[in-house]
Amino acid sequence: MQNFEPVIVAFCCHYCAYTAADMAGSKRLGYPPNVKIIRVPCSGKVDAIHMMKALEKGADGVYVAGCLDGDCHFKTGNIRAARHVEAVKKLLDEIGIEKERVEMFSMSAGMGEKFAEVASEFTERIRKLGPNPVKTSAFAQVRQAVG
């Protein structure tokens, strides 16, 4: 556990969060390399399958980052995204995986600092939770059994 380096997938909307990530870069703000960004046109594009598949394939944490309330380029995508995240949390709860492994964040395109802060805090959170149980014994056995 000491050397556990979580793998984290961040689905970032093109107009705000992805831009904020670029901003963090251009301001040379460091954040953990654990976070890997997948760009989507709108956070509302991210559905439960994407988050669940990421966890199934072995990611230790997943988050969706969209625009601030009222700033969504597509009006309400960020609100829908938050709903999808809530649904996934419930699902995880039911199957015995910590729901804290998924989260929704909002930031504007100008918030490079916020992006870096979120990436760091989320990585810390997952580090404390430890590896995704899908990768450890019980679930792995189930997976093997199911094939």
């Binding site: 997938v9 598949k53 394939k57």
Partner: peptide
């Protein structure tokens, strides 16, 4: 395509 990105990232892990 999105899932392929996840594969690219996570393939070695499980």
């Amino acid at each position: 395509q999105i899932l392929a990105k996840l594969d690219g990232l996570l393939e070695r892990m499980v």
